[in-house]
């Protein structure tokens, strides 16, 4: 993603100059520890898969020393989206389904920040389905973690866009009838440049995926299966070796840049494959906009903003 900001000069692609930077590289700071990252005690049900995702986010922050002023945690609405309250850092709890455009606004205007969006499957693929597609195709530089429990948790057990056919919910008491969305396929098709799948019961793997996403330049998407013990218990047992399931990693010979191959892997029936299914390099929207700006700025070099506007007004007389 991006480098820490240490200078006060305007950043390419940044809509505004940043007045005071915060972490002079030279300043001695004792290492960031978990104690400083933890905020409210999570309000999730005991045993909820989301605890593990949170714990691994702490780990990521600690391991990569992502100081408070370098990250922003954004979310939508749902159980999973309570996330920012549990992290001691700048955070924003936005509205249902719209976390990605919000996070895009942060990312596009602040190249100095690492932007993480933690959202639910309803957030990402139902109410915010369109936003998911467009954030992915625009390749906005941010990490989107969908905590997929295949159910609406916060609203207490309605069918979600990822609920499997036959899942009995309050809105489908006889079992869900609609074809579920496959998040991996959806992301690949939309043009995401980093598409990974993990599960909260495999902590090392979650951290590995988070680190790879952090290092990826562009829209990095992680689907993290995260069990809702309250409304869909056992949903992911089939992918948990401790419950007799099978955790299959993406085969080492898989070519991540091969879209068709990735799509094929994504099509495998549950429990499917875990790991990075797809990763390519494509200029980010952040970089493309910065390039447009560099071109334009070179034509107005040395002029103050008011002088640029004056030139325009002079043509309107």
């Amino acid at each position: 993603m991006s480098a820490p900001i240490t200078e006060t000069a305007p950043k390419a692609g940044s809509p505004a100059q940043i007045i005071i930077s915060t972490t002079p590289a030279a300043e001695p700071r004792k290492p960031l520890s978990k104690r400083e990252i933890v905020a409210d005690h999570p309000t999730w049900c005991p045993g909820c898969g989301d605890f593990a995702v949170l714990a691994l986010y702490y780990k990521l922050i600690e391991k990569r020393q992502l100081w408070h002023e370098r990250v922003t945690t954004v979310s939508g609405i749902g159980c999973s989206s309570r996330f920012p309250y549990f992290v001691q850092a700048h955070g924003a709890h936005f509205i249902h389904g719209r976390a990605l455009p919000f996070a895009s606004g942060v990312s596009l205007s602040r190249p100095d920040l690492h932007v993480f969006a933690f959202i639910g499957d309803g957030d990402a693929f139902s109410i915010g389905g369109n936003h998911f597609t467009h954030a992915a195709r625009k390749n906005v530089n941010l990490t989107c973690v969908v905590m997929d429990n295949e159910v609406y948790g916060l609203t207490k057990k309605q069918t979600s866009p990822t609920s499997p056919v036959g899942f009995k919910s309050k809105t489908d008491i006889w079992g869900a009838v609609d074809q579920p969305i496959n998040p991996m396929k959806q992301a690949i098709m939309a043009g995401a440049t980093f598409v990974a799948r993990t599960i909260s019961t495999n902590p090392n793997h979650v951290l590995q995926m988070m680190e790879a996403a952090l290092d990826h330049e562009g829209f990095s998407f992680i689907e993290c299966l995260s069990e809702c013990v309250e409304f869909y218990p056992g949903a992911f047992d089939g992918a948990n070796p401790r419950k007799g399931g099978q955790f299959r990693e993406v085969p080492p010979e898989h070519d991540r840049t091969d879209e068709a191959a990735a799509y094929k892997l994504a099509s495998e029936p549950f429990p499917g494959y875990f790991g990075i299914l797809y990763q390519v390099k494509r200029p980010t929207k952040n970089a493309l906009e910065a390039r447009i700006n560099t071109n334009f700025r070179s034509k107005v070099q040395g002029l103050a903003d008011w002088q640029i506007l004056q030139q325009t007004f002079d043509r309107m007389k």
Binding site: P15, V74, F94, S104, G105, S107
Partner: peptide, 9 residues
């Protein structure tokens, strides 16, 4: 949403 994100930032 995007404008609010930028404003927030």
């Amino acid at each position: 949403a995007m404008a609010l994100g930028a404003s927030y930032a």
